[in-house]
Nucleic acid binder design. Structure first.
Lengths: 137, 137
DNA sequence: ATACCTGCAAAGGTTTTGCACATAC
DNA sequence: GTATGTGCAAAACCTTTGCAGGTAT
């Protein structure tokens, strides 16, 4: 809540209710919602906010690194209020996405350098499997 | 070239020239082309093949695990004829994608199990950085 | 006061779909 | 011969854009 205020001031971006709403929503959930889901969730509280504004707010928030964009290969993006580098796992049955806490793969960037001529700056690690709920069935 | 024949026979899929063309193209290149690029590349040899057919062929090939779909978060999919699990690296400057050979992250699936309740089946590891060509500039 | 942001509608790009015709088996 | 696949055009889908009016600074 603080970070958005100071970062927006520093970058001379306007602190609008819509941007705050999107940011707060992402910070308040462990889910990894798409733009559409964020839009629908904020609808009751911000009935006049448009989907385009959600997209624009997300783009801004990603640019100033207050949120993270993740892409699990479904043709749409999901967003994560947790900007620490951490792996994600998606259920192949129900599509839900969870964080994996307690492990970080940032060290891979330097480890990989002996296998590629690229200057490696970042990485994304995605796991796919079956979530506890779907396993029961 | 053999694998497609036997796998298609086994799954009772028809071995059409279009499907063979898409498969052979992906096997013959180290690039990671999009559907559009595959379509354009095959145009000279198969001038009547439509883009929809390329998409359908790719979907079938992915389903029977003869090719791999990769998604680097650009809003489109890329395809890889190399189905062994291997990491990819994308240049943030020119967008090109390369394989990283000599290292495999399949062991992560079991390593990660102590950090998640999911039954982990597969993973995708993507690196982002600057390719040798773009570094020169 | 003014530069920036919102909301709307329209456009853009990628992928899918429905259907008649064609073809691999 | 028949089930399946192709090719075409249209549709569906996600995301971006242009612009007039509104708002944060």
């Amino acid at each position: 809540m603080d970070s958005i205020t100071s970062i927006f001031r520093e970058k001379k971006l306007k602190l609008t209710p819509q941007r705050i709403a999107v940011y707060k929503y992402l910070k308040s959930t462990k889910e990894h919602p798409s733009a559409e889901v964020i839009y629908k969730s904020l609808q009751p509280l911000y009935p006049t906010m448009s989907l385009a504004t959600v997209y624009k707010a997300l783009k801004t928030l990603v640019e100033v690194k207050l949120v993270q964009e993740i892409n699990l290969g479904e043709g749409n993006f999901r967003y994560d209020g947790n900007t620490c580098s951490h792996p994600h796992v998606q259920c192949l049955s129900c599509g839900r996405v969870d964080d994996i806490d307690g492990i970080c793969f940032e060290d891979l960037n330097s480890k990989i350098s002996e296998f590629t001529k690229y200057e490696v700056l970042s990485n994304q690690v995605y796991f796919y499997g079956v979530c506890p709920d779907c396993k029961e069935e």
